[in-house]
Nucleic acid binder design. Structure first.
Length: 408
DNA sequence: CATCCACAGGAAGGACGGGGGT
DNA sequence: ACCCCCGTCCTTCCTGTGGATG
């Protein structure tokens, strides 16, 4: 009894006294803008050079920034603009910024509404007004601001793919109707092919200047992690192997710094939870699995019902052998609808959903011609099946479908 | 070499809920 | 109270197409 109690006490003590290995976890979150951006000196000076004309009262050229995810595009933009704002306030100059991530606001109206919000132009509801009315409102507001306005359109490809480039065209021409103010646009995208979708007039005016961001290599990622580690963790808790492994893993993922930092943060959380006072390569390995899983689960949970049903059909088919085609998905999907009592959607809509799932990276689909036997998409699941099953089976009805063999 | 399969994907528009201006 | 506009899903109708087959 005596020893039992003390054992329990020990557990409680451990839990209560357990200290975090973090000193500042915020440093490893996505919104954190570091004071230094290692290995992006060239891009920073290029952007700074372009924007510098603002300080002399000119209108900076519009800039197009390309590069894969996690290559520092957004960080560089934020960093340089922060410096510009600091300098501008010293010399008593007025500059305003509007940052919009088009991935989450991919319609013309929503992008304009967000710009209004960022600039402090009130009276624009989330819906209800005609788009051109919002645009006029925005333009008049900017004119009254009497200053330079820099609009950052991050992940611009999502807007254009979803809603075309009309608003973009209007934005690039807004200066024609402004007397007292000027607008510069910084477009950011990780889709290099995206230029092809743009109207040539929009493209030429948007890419007066362009900056290409190369992926980080393993050593550069190591430097970045090292720097963040010093700010985020207590001294000496993160092992060298852990940092090297995280850098190497992220380097494999097209040199994605965001990924590397995510790995470090999640690994730290795992270590904390387990009460370990050192962050080792093992924690990084665990984090690697966790990070993938988290992202996929979140995406799938947010999918509209019909998209989930289509994904369910693909999951079911993925178990069988043979290629997954649009036709086979449709058959299984309709079977599922029948079993669950839903009204199935048409083939045309199904096509759009498949394209959507592909955009999200859940599947890949390549169009293949079978000659006499028609043309179809060959569909492949791009996420581990067990994760899909894990998320989908949270829903009782989906679980039922997954647990019985509905093929043939 | 034309044919023809099994779709791909554009265009137009409808239903519906959220939210205007007047 | 009225009508208008928007975004989201979805339908209907449609034209386009790579390449094995006859």
């Amino acid at each position: 009894m005596w020893s039992f109690l003390s054992a329990v006490d020990k557990i409680f003590d451990d839990l209560l006294l357990r200290e975090s290995i973090f000193i500042n976890r915020e440093v490893l979150t996505h919104d954190y803008v570091p004071d230094e951006l290692p290995h992006r000196e060239e891009e920073i000076s290029k952007l700074a050079y372009i924007l510098a004309s603002a300080l002399k009262g000119g209108k900076p050229s519009n800039v197009f920034m390309y590069g894969k995810t996690g290559t520092g595009k957004t960080a560089v933009a934020r960093y340089v603009l922060k410096k510009l704002a600091d300098r501008a306030s010293v010399i008593g100059m007025n500059v305003s910024f509007a940052y919009v991530n088009c991935r989450y606001r991919k319609t013309n109206y929503r992008v304009l509404a967000k710009i209004c919000e960022e600039l402090g132009c009130s009276g624009v509801p989330s819906t209800g007004l005609p788009t051109d009315v919002v645009f006029d409102k925005l333009r008049n507001f900017i004119e009254r601001l009497n200053r330079l306005v820099i609009v950052i359109l991050d992940e611009l490809d999502w807007l254009v793919r979803n809603s075309g480039d009309d608003t973009l065209y209007q934005l690039t021409r807004i200066n024609n109707d402004l007397e007292n103010s000027k607008v510069s646009i910084i477009g950011i995208t990780n889709d290099l092919k995206f230029r092809e979708y743009l109207d040539s007039r929009v493209l030429s005016s948007l890419s007066e200047e362009s900056i290409v961001f190369k992926p980080y290599n393993s050593e550069q990622l190591y430097d970045i992690l090292k720097m963040r580690t010093q700010l985020a963790f207590k001294d000496g808790v993160v092992s060298e192997e852990a940092l090297k492994l995280a850098a190497a893993l992220a380097a494999q993922e097209h040199g994605d710094a965001r990924r590397a930092i995510d790995l470090l943060r999640v690994a730290g959380e795992i270590a904390d939870r387990r009460g370990d006072n050192k962050l080792t390569a093992e924690h990084i390995m665990l984090a690697q699995k966790q990070v993938d899983r988290d992202i996929i689960e979140m995406v799938i949970r947010k999918l509209p019902q019909q998209e989930q049903l289509v994904l369910l059909a693909i999951t079911v088919l993925n178990n069988g052998d043979g290629q997954i085609t649009t036709g086979s998905v449709k058959k299984v999907y309709e079977k599922i609808c029948e079993l669950l009592g839903y009204k199935p959607i048409t083939l045309r809509r199904l096509n759009d959903i498949l394209a959507d799932l592909e955009m999200l990276g859940i599947i890949t689909a390549t169009i293949k011609s079978m000659g006499r036997y028609g043309r179809t998409r060959i569909i492949r699941l791009e996420v581990p099946r067990d994760i899909l099953i894990g998320v989908l089976s949270e829903d009782e009805k989906y679980n039922e479908i997954l647990s019985k063999n509905i093929l043939n």
